[in-house]
Design a protein around this nucleic acid. Structure first.
Length: 570
RNA sequence: CGGGGCAUAGCGCAGCCUGGUAGCGCAUCUGCUUUGGGAGCAGAGGGUCGCAGGUUCGAAUCCUGCUGCCCCGACCA
């Protein structure tokens, strides 16, 4: 490809509304153009990256025994009503009517369609397991699309769905997909981690997310320094090595005016923060006898909302009580709350459950109790894991301690079990001739998001630094003042042809631009390798090679450059 | 959905407070010079100032409504 054919259009300044670096660089390099909120055109340069990502995904999925198909983007409402998700999905599902006023949606995911395929096509356990995948456009009407293609409304996803006659078979395919995903992101030369994820309301026995590591990532992930344990912060289990100590203090009621926060309690009363408790009131689930329920975490800890949400006594989705609701139930407002004589169930983080001689609100305005002890002063609480882990906490597997990294979720593999196959009656005959509901797994990769994540992880002040396997081009030829030298022009054209026939993905910058312009553009769009040719250099029999991350160029004999590049690219 | 902000040339911005010829930089086009890190000079094209009302002799500017977009939060198989 030549730059003259590519319609390269780069800018020095980035649009004001681009916040994150990948979004800025994709716009500046002309990879994408915005059409409306969360809707982007992939320009020729950007599309080349997508195609390379898709190719790697395809090769590894095929190698793992999955087979490709493609399903409609628009789906009939009936299937979603059958699975129950037409009612559940909410405004994120883009719904539309056809000319006959029949309901449809634009697919945000394809469990319903694939389950329909499976129940029609699969008859016998002998046909299982089977794993279908597609690489296709999805639409989710996000509340707040942002960060360019990192979180757009329309995006390209590789989604795979497997069907099984037994849990063992599902586990096997799940493990195969884990390996395939590891291969995919390794081949893309991305620094990534597979982490345990919250499986949420769907249940299921396994859920792993694949994160590309980047400081700008939206997710926090915890990993152990002493083992291969890694989990999304939402899921990462905190353990409590301490045991409950005997009381040493009497409980006293203390006047605490203007002390509504943990920080004020620490500052005004010299109370160690480890002896304080945060009392959070939220709505209770139907299982609970009261309307509200209290969640307790230590003063210096953060409530983990996913863990709280998953607790059986807590309403899902998690909803904090308003100040009015709290005053009506307790008689005091936030800032004066505590577990002593609290008229609702108390769920304490296990760190809280082993605290002694601690301070908390007295459920009376402007008063706290100091020296509280469980059992004696307050009812022994329900104990649960409620808090976010912190760097330095022990790993839940007992090996090493936890550290926290930021990540961008680019893949998710999931054991669905029979949620959809049950609802949609997708069965096969087993070896006894009886109908059995198939088990399902699903496996997604955000193809467009991978491109953005790769940039978040690999960039510098000059622009993008593509990992070679997903770069729009592997090598760029930059001839300097080609118009002024026929020798140079002939040499460059010959080299360009040779590289093309050697299978090198090469770009020839044939614009009649100044050297600085070409250098700056090629660095911005992130081509991993650059070969500069000049009349002066050719007179000495050399060309210059520079890797995108190299500080300086190296001189290479002109007649050796093809072999040199072939070795580099091998 | 709650809070905040923005909307002027393809991009980045000024002008608005205090109403009176719509401007700057980048990009684009032409010519000359230049030519190894985003060239210089000279010239040119490009705008219903987001939309709709209102006030006024006169509105980019003041007022009202709408729309779009961005940020923070909530939300996110």
């Amino acid at each position: 490809m030549r730059t003259s054919q590519l319609h390269l259009s780069t800018t020095k300044e980035s649009p004001a509304d681009a916040e994150v670096i990948s979004h800025q660089l994709m716009l500046r390099s002309g990879m994408i153009r915005r059409l409306a909120a969360g809707l982007y055109t992939w320009m020729p340069l950007g599309l080349r990256v997508l195609r390379k990502i898709e190719r790697i995904v395809r090769e590894e999925m095929d190698a793992a025994g999955a087979s490709e198909l493609i399903m409609p983007a628009v789906q009939p409402a009936e299937l979603w009503q059958e699975s129950g998700r037409w009612g559940q999905f909410g405004p994120e599902l883009l719904r539309l009517k056809d000319r006959h006023q029949r309901d449809y949606c634009v697919g945000p995911t394809h469990e319903e369609v694939i389950t329909d395929i499976a129940r029609r096509d699969l008859r016998s356990y002998k046909q299982l397991p089977v794993n279908y995948y597609q690489i296709q456009t999805k639409f989710r009407d996000e509340v707040r699309p942002r960060f360019g293609v990192m979180r757009s409304r329309e995006f390209i996803m590789k989604d795979a769905y497997s069907f099984h006659a037994s849990p063992q078979s599902l586990q096997q395919t799940f493990d195969d997909m884990y390996q395939a995903y590891s291969n995919i992101f390794s081949r893309m030369e991305l620094e990534f981690r597979a982490v345990e994820a919250d499986s949420g309301a769907i249940g299921g026995s396994g859920s792993m997310e694949f994160h590309v590591l980047a400081d700008s990532g939206e997710d926090a992930i915890a990993y152990s320094t002493g083992s291969d344990y890694a989990a999304n912060l939402e899921k990462a289990e905190s353990i409590c090595p301490d045991t409950l100590a005997a009381p040493t203090q009497e409980m006293t009621l203390v006047d605490t005016p203007n002390t509504k926060t943990i920080q004020a309690l620490v500052d005004n009363f010299k109370m160690p923060v480890e002896k304080t408790i945060k009392t959070l009131i939220c709505h209770a689930s139907e299982e609970c006898e009261t309307e509200l329920v209290a969640l307790l975490v230590r003063g210096d800890h953060q409530l983990n909302e996913t863990k709280a949400n998953n607790h059986p006594l807590v309403a899902s989705p998690l909803c904090f009580a308003t100040e009015e609701e709290i005053r009506a139930a307790v008689g005091a407002g936030p800032g004066s709350l505590g577990p002593v004589k609290l008229p609702m169930p108390v769920i304490a983080d296990h760190t809280v459950a082993v605290m002694s001689d601690f301070g908390a609100g007295a459920n009376v305005e402007d008063k706290h109790y100091f020296g509280i002890n469980w059992g004696r002063d307050a009812d022994t609480p329900i104990v649960a894991d409620l808090r976010n882990i912190e760097a330095g906490d022990p790993s839940p597997d007992g090996k090493g301690e936890l550290q926290i990294l930021r990540g961008i979720e680019v893949g998710h593999i999931f054991q669905l079990g029979d949620k959809y196959s049950q609802a949609m009656n997708a069965t096969v005959l087993d070896e006894n001739g009886k109908d059995v509901v198939m088990s399902m797994g699903c496996y997604g990769i955000g193809v467009t998001r991978v491109a953005a994540a790769a940039i978040e992880q690999n960039n510098d002040d000059k622009g993008i630094i593509w990992p070679r396997p997903i770069a729009p081009f592997e090598v760029v030829l930059v001839p300097i003042n080609m118009r002024r030298s026929d020798t140079l022009k002939q040499t460059v054209e010959k080299l360009y042809d040779e590289l093309k026939s050697a299978g090198v993905d090469v770009l020839l910058d044939d614009r009649d631009s100044r050297a600085g312009v070409m250098f700056a553009d090629m660095e911005l769009i992130g081509i991993p390798m650059r070969v500069v040719l000049s009349e002066k250099g050719l007179a000495k029999g050399i060309v210059e090679f520079k890797g995108r991350r190299d500080d300086a160029a190296t001189e290479i004999a002109a007649d050796a450059i093809v072999d040199f590049l072939k070795t580099k690219l091998a």
